[in-house]
Design a protein around this nucleic acid. Structure first.
Lengths: 136, 136
DNA sequence: ATAATTGCAAATGCTTTGCTTGTGA
DNA sequence: TCACAAGCAAAGCATTTGCAATTAT
């Protein structure tokens, strides 16, 4: 249903095409973090003519427009997610590959502090936790 | 001079060859975090016959033996460093590419706490800070 | 109208691998 | 001796790109 990404494209002046609309729709509706191949497969259910090259190009375009975020988690190919309101980091289940988002202000603050102590202005960061589910 | 890695190989029962000795030596003496190509070039100054395939194989072997650590920082190829005594994370200078190591126990502790709160046992993690030098 | 976008296939860049010859313990 | 390692070139994978045809505005 929702196609929040298409709206963002309009807002940012990103030219829309049929293919981009489909890709936007699929990404808007996906809750997990698909890789390009998974995305391409889903997109092809709507329009089997859309090539993987277009998916690559679009995903990169959206990323440069700040609409999608790319993640290179350990041992997997690049994954994409819609850029959300608030910044968050990820915990990856090493057994299932499931990705859990979390926010921790204390860690954010400490990262900034560490950077400054080293004489740097923090511009970007990457924090990934890899864990296995605790069975109760 | 030093060849700490060769010692580690002996300790861990990793078979030594001329090529591996050279690679071990170069890595032992390098303070920065070389990528495979840089490493191969340095290695070739000692022995120009050593192929890049061997460098790839050796670096992977050492990594599996816990002697080297591999890092995939954003936007660069894989880099290697000798596994050191204590765990540390990295701050990458986005202008020069320089890599600064740091340790922060508070962050470590918080990561564990976050994982547990989410129902996971923390197995591994990745923390990278990207910053630009503050000019004074 | 026309600058941008697509699909296709070929090219890329990094890394791995099959195979034959060479070698460490 | 002989299982393992090295060198070479070919293959693999994810991603990018040149080009001719198509499309959005």
């Amino acid at each position: 249903m929702s196609n929040a990404i298409e709206e963002k494209c309009k807002k940012k002046g990103v030219r829309l095409t049929d293919q981009r609309r489909v890709i936007a729709k699929v990404m808007s509706e996906s809750d997990n973090h698909p890789d390009v191949d998974e995305l391409h497969k889903k997109v092809n259910r709507h329009d089997s003519k859309i090539s993987i090259a277009t998916v690559y190009r679009t995903v990169k375009l959206f990323e440069e427009a700040g609409i999608l975020a790319k993640h290179d988690f350990k041992g997997t190919k690049a994954r994409y997610e819609e850029t959300t309101r608030e910044h968050h980091d990820h915990l990856i289940d090493i057994n299932t590959g499931e990705i859990i988002e979390f926010v921790n202000e204390d860690i954010e603050r400490l990262q900034k502090k560490v950077s400054e102590k080293l004489g740097y202005k923090l511009v970007d960061h990457r924090l990934e936790l890899y864990g296995s589910k605790i069975k109760k």
